[in-house]
């Protein structure tokens, strides 16, 4: 699947690899989200290169990068921006918050209050922010990569399930392996290469790519496959709440992006299978028994994939 990548995508990925060692799949998935207009929830410990990855991505696509460090005392206006009275002009002027950008790293999103969280999430969902009754459209592309720290639960506000649905993908970054980590150290001795990173595509080109992705063909048999997967999560014995139709739509869109990145103009079941755990896992609420048994949502999704037959024949209408 990786052999015939779309050349533009391949250049972006190679660009990111100049600063990131390994983690190609994370970069890929991030691109999937970026290109299909979704957002990513990264669940990982600090210091594994999340910021570096996002910055490299932003630089490669010549996007404006913003970073919001979420703290318990952060106010919604600190995210969205505020209207300030300008005495000279005799009117309120809108001071844009950090959300007005293209690529936003929302660090430790679970540390802030639900009110502030929802300010970000509204922006993510609607692609606009409303401040003092005035709606400000966000510039496309708008891509949020939120992170949350899975170990520290003291003083955190876990994202409610409904909110999690807003993220296209949830993934883990993980530690680099031995060789990669040595390479990381070697690179750290030099000047941080991120500053030398050159953009690969313009924002305009990126928008064009996004448009092309919408044209990627999804056969009815694939749609059926996606729906089969989603509905199977709804009837799974360990699942309290399965994947919503929005989850199905997300999986399809993500698959389209992945297919495009792989140099195809049609989706194949492999795309769906590869993405399903990332798209579905955080949308499933497990039964408490299952949680006690230590079953994880990803595992459930993988079991579902194993049970739904792949379409290998044309759908008979």
């Amino acid at each position: 699947m990786r052999s015939e990548m779309n050349p533009t995508i391949e250049r972006i990925l190679q660009n990111i690899e100049k600063v990131m060692t390994g983690k190609r799949n994370v970069a890929e998935l991030s691109l999937v989200a970026l290109l299909s207009g979704g957002h990513v929830l990264l669940e990982d410990v600090p210091g594994v290169g999340k910021t570096m990855m996002v910055r490299a991505l932003a630089k490669s696509v010549s996007a404006e990068f913003r970073r919001i460090q979420f703290t318990p005392d952060l106010l919604p206006s600190d995210v969205t921006g505020v209207s300030i009275y300008n005495p000279r002009e005799m009117e309120f002027q809108f001071r844009a918050g950090p959300i007005i950008g293209n690529i936003i790293l929302a660090d430790e999103i679970n540390r802030t209050s639900p009110k502030t969280q929802s300010a970000l999430l509204e922006g993510m969902e609607e692609s606009s922010v409303t401040v003092d009754g005035v709606t400000h459209e966000l510039e496309s592309p708008f891509f949020v990569m939120a992170t949350q720290n899975p170990i520290e639960y003291e003083g955190t506000y876990p994202l409610p399930e409904a909110q999690l649905d807003r993220f296209l993908l949830k993934m883990k970054m993980g530690y680099p392996d031995l060789d990669e980590e040595i390479e990381v150290l070697s690179r750290a001795q030099k000047v941080p290469p991120i500053d030398d990173l050159q953009p690969v595509v313009s924002l305009e080109e990126l928008r064009k790519l996004k448009k092309e992705i919408k044209e990627v063909y999804v056969d009815d048999s694939i749609k059926r496959y996606i729906v089969d997967l989603a509905s199977m999560t709804r009837v799974h014995s360990s699942v309290y709440l399965g994947v919503s139709p929005r989850g199905s739509i997300s999986l399809m869109k993500a698959s389209q992006a992945l297919a495009f990145m792989s140099g195809r103009d049609f989706v194949i079941p492999d795309d769906v299978q590869y993405l399903a755990p990332f798209v579905f896992a955080h949308r499933i609420i497990l039964k408490s028994e299952a949680r006690f048994e230590g079953i994880e949502a990803e595992e459930v999704v993988n079991r579902v994939i194993a049970r739904v037959p792949v379409p290998v024949q044309r759908l008979v209408k």
Binding site: M1, Q273, A306, P309, V310
Partner: peptide, 9 residues
Amino acid sequence: RGKDQTLRE
């Protein structure tokens, strides 16, 4: 071929 196995795999 497992039923969950895609043709590519």
